[in-house]
Design a protein around this nucleic acid. Structure first.
Length: 104
DNA sequence: CTTATGACTATGA
DNA sequence: TTCATAGCCATAA
């Protein structure tokens, strides 16, 4: 395996349990790159995605919002997938990090 | 080698 | 409160 920044991000995301979500910054921090949050998202974009078992849909912004327009082919898709997994959404359209944010 | 870009985050107005 | 800008770091060209 090529232990690159991307592969590192995939490993972290793959460890997110079902019904939980993690923020880009949190993942970046886990991999030892607390300032590369932007690149974590980019890793998802360029990643093999769920095809490789990387549940990138469980990765959200620090405030619980999702990536719009770039996710999985259409807005709302990610939210639908998360709801299927048991993620709780707030009326604001954000994930309930208070209950669903992944704890290492 | 330098420059440009980006599924982010924090801060300021 | 929301919107805009700065800083951040890893790849690509």
């Amino acid at each position: 395996m090529n232990e690159g920044f991307f592969a590192q991000a995939y490993e972290i995301v793959k460890q997110i349990p079902e019904g939980r979500v993690a923020t880009y910054g949190q993942i970046a921090r886990m991999m030892g790159h607390p300032r590369s949050a932007r690149y974590v998202g980019y890793a998802m974009h360029a990643s093999p995605g769920m095809r490789e078992g990387v549940p990138c849909h469980r990765v959200v912004f620090a405030d619980g919002s999702l990536a719009r327009g770039f996710a999985f082919g259409g807005p709302g898709i990610q939210r639908q997938m998360l709801e299927e997994e048991g993620i709780i959404f707030l009326p604001d359209g954000k994930v309930d990090l208070a209950q669903c944010q992944w704890e290492a």
